[in-house]
Design a protein around this nucleic acid. Structure first.
Lengths: 335, 335
DNA sequence: TCCCTCTCAGGGAGCGCTCCCTCGAACCCC
DNA sequence: GGGGTTCGAGGGAGCGCTCCCTGAGAGGGA
């Protein structure tokens, strides 16, 4: 590959400019206690030599890395190939972090092996902070990371919320609103397809569903999904078998709802006439289903950006309080 | 935040084990020229002290970082919030790189400012190699990165293919197959909605469409999209206005096809009876449209993994030849 | 027995940067 | 004008690791 030109060092710049290393360092780091003429001398030499600071050396000396890890759980088998959540969250968080001048190290935490790798990496002092995304309840990683002595936040409440601050949606409120909407429309047999039960978001959405139904004296009917389309399709099939007379479904997320819609279509049900469907998240795809999906808006992107800001705030001694972002029902055609 | 326990250094281990730093270094790095008893002594001390090598120091000394940058273009305004491509590509590439013991630094390249940041970062010697994803034709970044003297590859052919090796789909073949399929079904007025014309993938899919039509003596009808659902919906509307009698559409990707389906539905056209639709990529969502989408399979994930392997191969003196991955038509209901 | 070779452990000079400390010069106030 | 401040430049000791080099000891051949 290319010519590995030896890059100029800070010392080379110092020699070139006829000043000391210290002065160059000061100028490069934007300290104000430098005489203008020296600053000019240095800046000139920097430009002439094309000097770029060696961040590795800087990291060694300062014991900071300027890097934030985004640690995101990785589905075991590559089940979910196109996960809107992944894209929205990683993008939004990265943007926010990069805008703050941080580097982003992406780490997938799936297999035990990869978990070890993540742990090692963080333990090795390679990052100044970490942002965890969509950890499952059984996951030991959050606890391990939390005790590493670096700022850590979670996108979404953890099963062990006390471990670190987090930013979450108002899952309870949003789900309650969705189910009440179904009730208001006169639906009598309202089923739900939940997310993976070891995830707090799924738990919240489920328990709000249950609470609202219980308050209205109705019986709940549920099947378990895992936040994917195929799980939604399967679960819908099971629900239809269990109770062919159901007239509404609250899906724990839009992907599940999309899967459910397909099964309903194939079983000959009309939506919303025979069965109403409500999703959760309001991903872009919800606008393109037939009929368009009524759903609960929870901007993953905004949430991720807020999570990143929470983390950045921690570095400046900001508050470590959990943040709950509002959700709201978006009524379209499916319910 | 937590107690910043000073982590033990290599020297501490050496003292503890009663050997020299050099020996500890050798053991830690798995060199074979170490007497078994010394190795045991060291390993024991490592375990006792919980020693983890400081990779920053190691990087400084070795002038390697063990880190690969995944540089991915970022849409200007946050248009695309859930981009299946992003998820599939980043996930697959990360997996492959992490499995090879590399660290992954994710960099979004969007605004000129962020481009500068990426350039600086790579120039600063922070990464050993880079993997570019979905660069647009006008993007100056590939050329800049290519001359940095580190191994670089591209996921998808660049507008300037000679800059670096790449892994691409057989866009030409896949698109040709799709259009021929439409022809074979007796469709007479076949339109296309292209991707952004500054991306080679979009160009190839478009030119294959044109070539096949020209060979069959048919006239081409096109609208330009940008690989998003909304652009597909808009372009479809325009197409319908331009030529209300069209009976087939070849969409440059599935997202566009999904958008087009919605517009067709709203305009009262039945798919495939009135208008046949073929997409490209075979993302998971293509299975859940109504009707299910006929499309060209091109596993983004496999392609990304192959790209990562190509890059890893470069470090070991492997070939720098472009790789073209096969595509194939998946016939479902929409055409 | 002597010499040469070979194997391995230890010593220590960097890698490029930061940051504390020293020290000269300029500046001030009575 | 003297003593005290202030300000800013330079010197140099690390940061934790790698890797070259030296040298001790073992082994082998004649």
């Amino acid at each position: 590959m290319g010519e590995n030109v030896k890059r100029p060092t800070l010392e080379a710049v110092a020699v070139r400019a006829g000043v000391s290393k210290s002065s160059v360092s000061r100028v490069v780091n934007g300290e104000t206690t430098v005489a203008p003429e020296i600053r000019d001398l240095v800046l000139h030499a920097v430009r002439e030599l094309g000097y770029v600071p060696n961040s590795t050396a800087r990291n060694l000396a300062t014991k900071r890395t300027n890097t934030i890890a985004i640690i995101i759980s990785d589905p075991p088998a590559g089940l979910v190939s196109d996960d809107p959540m992944f894209s929205a969250v990683v993008r939004a968080a990265s943007r926010e972090l990069e805008a703050a001048g941080k580097q982003v190290a992406l780490m997938l935490a799936g297999s035990p092996e990869s978990q070890r790798r993540v742990e090692q990496y963080v333990a090795a002092g390679h990052v100044d902070g970490a942002l965890l995304v969509s950890m499952h309840g059984a996951d030991p990683l959050p606890a391990l990371i939390a005790r590493m002595g670096i700022p850590v936040v979670s996108h979404g409440r953890l099963a062990a919320p006390w471990l670190m601050p987090y930013v979450d949606n108002d899952n309870l409120g949003g789900a309650a609103q969705a189910v009440r909407h179904l009730l208001d429309q006169g639906r009598r047999r309202i089923a739900t397809i939940s997310g993976p039960l070891d995830m707090p978001a799924a738990q919240d959405r489920l328990s709000a569903y249950r609470d609202v139904l219980k308050d209205s004296g109705r019986r709940s009917i549920m099947a378990v999904g895992d936040f994917t389309r195929v799980s939604g399709a399967d679960a819908m099939g099971q629900l239809l078998e269990d109770d062919p007379g159901l007239d509404a479904v609250f899906a724990a997320n839009d992907l599940i709802a999309i899967g459910a819609l397909r099964t309903l279509r194939r079983s000959g049900r009309r939506v919303p006439d025979d069965v109403a469907v409500v999703g959760f998240d309001d991903i872009e795809a919800a606008l393109y289903t037939d009929p368009a999906l009524t759903t609960v808006r929870s901007s993953m992107g905004d949430q991720a950006a807020a999570t990143a800001r929470l983390l950045l705030g921690l570095f400046d001694g900001g508050p470590a309080d959990p943040v709950i972002m509002p959700t709201g029902l978006v009524v379209r055609e499916s319910a």
